[in-house]
Nucleic acid binder design. Structure first.
Lengths: 359, 359
DNA sequence: TTGTATGCGTTATCAT
DNA sequence: ATGATAACGCATACAA
């Protein structure tokens, strides 16, 4: 294992102004209310049975007067829990991520936890640094859709009994709870519909699969479904790396010319891919659905608006977030049952971009 | 001021499993490396001058062996700084917010700070709770686009010397640093272009202005510009509250029928509004730009894709985030200069949705 | 170059 | 029903 040089990274140590105004502490409240710190602490943790009505009210008032806010760092240090949850997403600008985030957030706050959100840009190095940072904060749980290149550090977290829950991307080798869209079901459902509509050629466009299980499952299901149906498009899986300039245009051109004149469909692995594809199609002056049909994963807000309405597979993103966080909570409460993988169904939303042939 | 009942909200106090594996502390490292805790602490804060080459290496190795991670809560408690920044956004699912967030994040991590992200759904109550929560975490700074209904609590933060920086929405009465799009410039630029294109009727569609300065500035500039130009559309400002069902359809209909046959344009206050408008227009079977032209604030990823390409005003979101966080950093370093309002220019991006009349 | 002792704000233990 | 005291992990003032 690499030696991690652990040096405090706050460069600005030099001279942060220490002009600390009087922020009141539990001691201040105690003095002001004429009781001991212990009693205040009891009040703070809701042990009202052990406090007389009178003093309870006095404490309440004093806290308001002093604008006292319990210090979570002190509390966390003492109790060995931070009351914070870490969330690491691959791309925070992707609505898919933020929707999951919303689910996580709602459950978090309902239970008094705070959320530290980190964005890796799919960069394993950034991911590693964030994991370490969250570890330093002593997060009580982590929710992550991982690049798949930091198993060592994730494992380390788990060894410290910090619950880790994976979302969107499975990593079976780690034995973590996992919450994902049921990609097999969703893809199958969509494919069945496509064949029903009479498409003679269907192409699946995906980003490099790498360690991203969702892409992998979608590609595989696409392939296997067509194989089973003995459909001519079996090999029409196109892998596009956006970092390679012009690759999308090139592969798109390859498919388009090879399927000239056929009743054809472009199926995109996610919303990002779909948008890029539509961009190119528009530049080429191709009309949807007259010249080519399209569909994709992710039912984003533009899907109904782009004429004639884009057929999509809505992923249960919010629910994924809720489930993931609830899972974390269970583990925090001490649940030691074996790790589970929860697969939530996707929903096919049919719009104008995928007409049937007879029509 | 209302009495805030301050009771620990972690419901799950009951029996969190205390099966704490051995997480090593500074003491463990010290013992293992055969030096004092002080020396380890020196290492951690980068005071290498005061450590011999030999012991430095030994410490390095020991830290790696023990997988030691300094406890930020302990450090924060001692130093009275949490190394965390709070960020409160009105709607995390809005790409506008996440783009700002990206800017904040980059500056944060570059300087060793962590980010706690909170989402209010434009709900003042949620906002209040988040402010208090962040306060409890003793955040070193706060970046917020506020609902405008929690001045009291924001002020409280400021009194404790916690820097607060406003983004997107100004609140002059608070005297905080503020970073926003230059809405006057951006709107003016767009309007000038629209008139140049020869539009006879222009409608501005906005959500209720309330305390949201950006909406206010855009509406006002729209109005004043037309007044100055003595343009017939002076009164065409439509306020739509999405919570009122059918209101958008109704107001849209009003404008459409009143402008029948004229060379006309719909100008939306932001991307969310634009998408909803496009939805209705499509249902009505209106073509863009033949039947009506459209344009909006926010250059989101769908803008170039929706035929014939939507004309937009790109806001410098990422830069807003960067500037805001740099502002926070300055204040943390003790800068006491008067609060500034930074206005970053918006950029008009012309696409097919706003053709000129002669064309 | 290194170490000792004290305290940050809170909770837990053990008292009364 | 209430309090005194120790301890959480770390940084700092002061010694050596």
């Amino acid at each position: 294992m690499a030696i991690v040089k652990l040096v405090n990274s706050v460069k600005s140590l030099s001279k942060p102004s220490k002009q600390q105004s009087h922020r009141s502490t539990i001691g201040d409240v105690a003095r002001e209310a004429g009781v001991s710190k212990t009693t205040i602490s009891r009040y703070l943790s809701g042990q009202f049975d052990s406090i007389s009505e009178q003093t309870r009210k006095r404490i309440e008032q004093t806290i308001a007067d002093l604008k006292y806010r319990p210090n979570r760092m002190a509390r966390g240090l003492k109790r060995d829990r931070s009351f914070s949850i870490g969330m690491i997403v691959a791309d925070i600008t992707n609505p898919f991520s933020t929707s999951i985030l919303r689910g996580v957030e709602d459950v978090c706050t309902k239970h008094g936890y705070s959320l530290m959100v980190c964005n890796t840009d799919n960069d394993p190095v950034k991911e590693k640094e964030y994991i370490m940072m969250l570890q330093a904060h002593r997060i009580d749980g982590l929710i992550i859709n991982s690049t798949g290149h930091n198993n060592e550090y994730l494992h380390e977290l788990a060894e410290e009994q910090t619950p880790v829950v994976l979302v969107d991307r499975k990593m079976p080798e780690l034995g973590f709870d996992t919450v994902v869209t049921n990609n097999v079901q969703a893809t199958t459902e969509a494919m069945r519909f496509f064949l029903q509509q009479g498409y003679e050629r269907i192409a699946f466009f995906t980003q490099p699969v790498e360690k991203v299980s969702s892409r992998n499952e979608r590609s595989n299901t696409f392939h296997q479904f067509l194989a089973q149906a003995n459909h001519p498009s079996i090999t029409d899986v196109y892998v596009v790396d956006f970092r390679e300039n012009g690759q999308l245009e090139q592969k798109l051109e390859a498919y388009l010319s090879s399927s000239q004149g056929q009743f054809r469909l472009l199926f995109a692995v996610n919303g990002v891919m779909q948008l890029k594809i539509l961009n190119v199609l528009q530049q080429k002056g191709l009309r949807i659905p007259e010249d080519i049909a399209v569909a994709c994963f992710d039912d984003l807000d533009w899907a109904p608006v782009i004429p004639p309405g884009i057929t999509t597979i809505a992923q249960p993103t919010y629910e994924i977030g809720v489930n993931a966080m609830e899972r974390v909570l269970k583990r925090i409460m001490g649940d030691q049952s074996p790790a589970e993988t929860i697969e939530l169904p996707g929903k096919l939303i049919i719009r104008g971009s995928t007409p049937s042939k007879t029509k």
